[in-house]
């Protein structure tokens, strides 16, 4: 892909990130959930059926199943080493071991199942939430919020970093302000974020933006400042103007560093998202956890954590793969 195509793709992504936020109900289940005729609780939420350990998924079968899957994977990784990624199998094995021990500890009543809901309970609970469309609403609410604030952080962090790296006077005035703001952990801004931006999405946008903005800004500054003088002189001797120095030397040479900043910023934004959702919003994975906590619905709390974990890993994998593609010249 050429440089212009990349710029265009980035612009389209930012635009999409900004517009998706203002679209209507995102999936068919949403209305069905809101108007379902079944029994509902105080918040107009369908009441869950009681879960009984051993009824929906048999813990013994579950443990045996996980153990067999682990053994099969290990055998496969030894026999067909070419086709099976060995590090992944090892990682899955250690996760599987923990899951087995966890399930057994609760099954043999060594631990109270409210204090540590077993994996089977969490799975059934999540499945129930998914079937009702309840989980999707929260995942979508969180993702929209995250991407909006994240693209806002890119759209502000990269240009500001570029200006700070290139213009000495601007940097002298502005850089200290950002450094002062940077050392305050984003959640500490929550009270003022709510006072300033009110209840709803804006305060959480602000918190997530704060978390994602600084890694992007700092990496952009250091990436642009690390531009080699010999590259700048090279393009000048080829007839490049000042704009060519910016667009054809500084940006491409800083791009890998900027991209790393974007990846780190996304990770921190994801952390800030859940923190921000604990207050002042009415949907989202963080809110789901907080709401379940109030009802002592510990399987949902744990389930929410698992979903957050999976999405975190998913996005990190995507960003790492994209990073590899971006820096293929290095």
């Amino acid at each position: 892909m050429g440089f212009r195509a990349k710029l265009l793709a980035l612009a389209v992504l930012i635009f999409a990130g900004l517009t998706i936020n203002f679209s209507g109900p995102a999936f068919a289940g949403q209305e069905a959930f809101e108007t379902s005729g079944g029994p509902v609780d105080t918040w107009n939420r369908p009441i869950e059926k009681e879960f009984v350990v051993g009824k929906d998924i048999d813990p013994v079968h579950f443990v045996i199943g996980v153990a067999i899957a682990m053994v099969l994977l290990l055998v496969a990784s030894n026999t067909f080493a070419k086709f099976v990624p060995v590090p992944l199998v090892r990682a899955l094995t250690s996760v599987g071991l923990i899951v087995i021990v966890w399930e057994m500890v609760v099954y043999y009543k060594l631990v109270n199942q409210v204090l540590l809901p077993p994996p089977t309970t969490v799975i059934i609970k999540l499945q129930g939430h998914w079937a009702k469309g309840y989980l999707q609403i929260h995942i979508l609410a969180s993702l929209k919020r995250l991407f909006f604030a994240f693209f806002l952080a890119i759209a502000t962090g990269v240009p500001l970093g570029f200006l700070i790296a290139n213009f000495r006077k601007f940097s002298d005035y502005v850089d200290p302000l950002f450094n002062l703001m940077r050392v305050v952990p984003p959640p500490a801004w929550l009270p003022f974020a709510i006072l300033w931006f009110g209840i709803g999405n804006p305060p959480s946008y602000f918190i997530i933006w704060l978390g994602a903005f600084f890694p992007i800004l700092l990496n952009t500054i250091s990436g642009i400042k690390d531009t080699q003088q010999i590259h700048i002189e090279s393009i000048q001797t080829l007839g490049g103007s000042r704009m060519d120095v910016y667009a054809r030397v500084m940006i491409p040479s800083a791009f890998p560093t900027i991209f790393t900043g974007i990846r780190i910023g996304f990770g921190i934004g994801w952390i800030c998202l859940v923190t921000a959702e604990l207050v002042a919003v009415d949907a989202g994975l963080g809110w789901m956890i907080e709401d379940a906590r109030n009802l002592l619905d510990t399987p949902t709390v744990l389930g929410g954590m698992v979903v957050i974990m999976m999405f975190g890993i998913f996005f990190d994998t995507i960003f790492r793969a994209a990073e590899k593609e971006v820096v293929k010249w290095q």
Partner: peptide, 11 residues
Amino acid sequence: FQSERAVFPWL
């Protein structure tokens, strides 16, 4: 230039 690093590595 003296150094071969003057070649743009991203092109």
